[in-house]
Amino acid sequence: MQVVVQAKAFDAGAALNGFAAGVAGAGAVVSFTGLVRDNGGRLAAMEIEHYPGMTEKAIASMMDQAAARWALVDALVIHRFGRLAGGEPIMMVAVASKHRADAFQAAEFLMDYLKSRAPFWKKELGPDGATWVAARDEDETALERW
């Protein structure tokens, strides 16, 4: 299992292929890639701040929880910070398992936890200035199903 927190852009396709090439015994790989929404062309950039140290630990702990609940062969989380342009990948989750149900569920679990338990904060820069993205109630509620 691997956690990558980086400022530089990544190629989601290449990352997924690399991950899938190293999961011997798996019969399923599920992945999710989050992109920067450009808000109809009004977004100039997104700035992501994070808590170095806690970020990596929090994500590793989510992966441990996922591995305890589902039969996983491997998992990968890549998450960027710093300045991003509209359309760029922000983050990616990939999960490999023997059968697909485990990978689908673990990927959703990891996404739900990354949304509101990994210490990242997004700021949108647009024509009207900069705005911190507010956490949504739905994201908090989403954790209750787990």
Binding site: I90, M91, S116, P119, F120, W121, V133, A134, A135
Partner: peptide
């Protein structure tokens, strides 16, 4: 000790 608003990852 760190203080911050609700997190917005993902």
């Amino acid at each position: 000790v760190a203080f911050f608003p609700p997190m917005t990852g993902g």
